[in-house]
Design a protein around this nucleic acid. Structure first.
Length: 138
DNA sequence: CGTATGACCATGC
DNA sequence: GGCATGGCCATAC
């Protein structure tokens, strides 16, 4: 039987935005991921810029389940949307320097669970090292 | 269809 | 470390 098409949406099985949101939901409480990381997990042709667009779209309203948009920051370790985002992260235990920079080595996400990624057809982070995973446990 | 804009990024100075 | 540039891709007009 046919899937009812959502008006205004492309007829792909799932829009790129929806898949980006799926990944963002995997970021654990108290961790952050960069736009570029999520783009890498998606794989080409999705770019960091597309991830930013997807997050920006959330301003119009959150999907269900909601997306922890505050955990997606830029590659410099700074939030891209102003102070409110940083405060939300600080409430999760993510610390920032006075200049508003966080330590991605300490609070950065190491990527999705490999089993989950494979089941959903996503890539893993190329840089996710065992060492950093151990570091994260602390 | 050209142009501008955007929650980006790597690189070079 | 800051700043400029070019590249990336999707959207809006």
């Amino acid at each position: 039987m046919h899937q009812p098409d959502r008006a205004g949406e492309p007829d792909e099985p799932r829009s790129a935005f929806s898949r980006i949101y799926e990944i963002a939901r995997q970021i654990p409480y108290g961790r952050v991921a960069t736009y570029g990381q999520i783009a890498q997990i998606m794989g080409p042709p999705v770019t960091a810029r597309d991830v930013g667009d997807a997050m920006a779209a959330l301003r119009d309203g959150q999907p269900d389940p909601p997306v922890p948009w505050q955990r997606v920051i830029n590659a410099q370790g700074r939030v891209s949307t102003g102070q409110r985002q940083q405060i939300l992260l600080e409430q999760e235990g993510v610390s920032f320097t006075v200049k508003g920079v966080t330590d991605l080595g300490r609070f950065g996400w190491q990527g999705p669970d490999p089993g989950w990624a494979e089941a959903h057809g996503f890539h893993l982070l190329k840089n996710a090292s065992e060492e950093k995973k151990q570091l994260d446990l602390f």
